[in-house]
């Protein structure tokens, strides 16, 4: 019974290993540290966004604005650096708190005015994307010594793997989010709100401040992902990260988090992103499969996981009913 909660997690992990094994068996160079480290560095921004999304979804909400926030923070950062000659660190120091404010405002609308997260963050998505295009419609290149240093920062792994700044930032964020969600009172409150926000309120959970903090955090992580994305592309573009929110949501669900809220693990999301990344790598290695198969396979995976979760929750319900019957 206990292990049932971890079942989706195990399945994702098993699928990940299985696909990796098949790839390694089929293609030379697939099962190498280089591929693994690329998996992390290529997906670092998605991983960071998905961690924020995990928080939001565990609390029973959803955040559609993250893709647009990635674009906005990328454009703002590159504008500040290239046009206004700010130091990148100063630009980051302005952008991250600004993103927190943006997310907090969305959280406030959701909590205070009892609006649906879906529609509020949809408006947030328009707002962020609109601001980004207003700032600049063209891609802005970043040319700064700090960025060159960032690109060179890192260390080699034996076997050709490279652990760069993006991967390191992700690992730091991952550790922080795990501590926050699984070892802090704030995390317990997030799970509580996702379970039932009315009960949580009656049990003394500060629902208002927690909700606001959740969306603020999600936006901060999205902005951070936008910054990491500029490390990757050396530019900021208003149309970057279109549809990224869907990838993040898909990764969270594949990672075993219930979209109804209240249940899930941070590490599952990481596995979800990696699984999606491995599928993509496999399709690239194969060469004969077209890119659209990625979307179809991810859609099927999502379907499989949602049905699995349905079956699991139904089983819990049946055990509960049987428990009641046995009790009476």
């Amino acid at each position: 019974m206990m292990s049932l909660r971890y079942l989706p997690l195990w399945i994702t992990a098993a699928l990940l290993c299985l696909l990796f094994g098949i790839g390694g068996w089929q293609f030379d160079g697939f099962a190498s540290l280089a591929v693994v480290s690329n998996l992390f560095s290529d997906n670092a921004f998605l991983l960071i966004v998905a961690l924020g999304m995990t928080l939001v979804i565990i609390s029973g909400g959803i955040d559609l604005s993250v893709g647009a926030v990635i674009a906005l923070s990328g454009v703002a950062v590159s504008l500040l650096i290239s046009q206004y000659q700010w130091h990148p660190l100063a630009a980051f120091a302005l952008i991250l708190p600004a993103a927190a404010l943006f997310g907090a405002l969305m959280g406030m609308l959701i909590h205070v005015y009892k609006l649906q997260p879906f529609i509020v963050t949809l408006a947030g998505m328009f707002l962020a994307r609109g601001l980004a295009t207003t700032l600049s419609e063209e891609s802005i290149a970043i040319d700064h010594s700090f960025y060159d240093a960032i690109a060179e920062f890192g260390f080699m792994l034996p076997g050709g793997g490279w652990v760069g700044a993006s991967t390191m930032i992700f690992i730091v964020v991952l550790v922080l989010v795990i501590m926050l969600m699984h070892y802090s009172r704030f995390g317990a409150c997030v799970y509580a709100i996702g379970g039932n926000s009315q009960s949580a309120q009656l049990m003394g959970v500060p629902v208002a401040s927690t909700t606001i903090a959740i969306y603020a955090l999600s936006s901060v992580l999205a902005a951070l992902a936008g910054i990491v994305f500029t490390f990757y592309t050396f530019s900021g573009y208003a149309l970057a990260g279109v549809g990224m929110e869907l990838d993040a949501i898909a990764a969270v669900v594949i990672g075993g988090t219930l979209l109804t809220g209240g249940s899930g693990f941070v590490i599952g999301t990481v596995l979800g992103v990696l699984l999606m990344g491995v599928i993509q790598t496999y399709i690239i290695f194969d060469g004969s499969l077209s890119s659209w198969w990625t979307k179809i396979v991810i859609g099927l995976l999502l379907f499989g996981f949602i049905v699995l979760q349905k079956l699991l929750s139904r089983r819990t319900a049946i055990t509960l009913a049987a428990g009641r019957a046995g009790h009476g």
């Binding site: 317990a188 379970g195 209240g262």
Partner: peptide, 14 residues
């Protein structure tokens, strides 16, 4: 209470 949390978490939430 919150059915999704563990018994211990329910007892000590907050």
């Amino acid at each position: 209470l919150l059915p999704n949390l563990s018994v211990a978490q329910n007892l000590f939430l907050g």
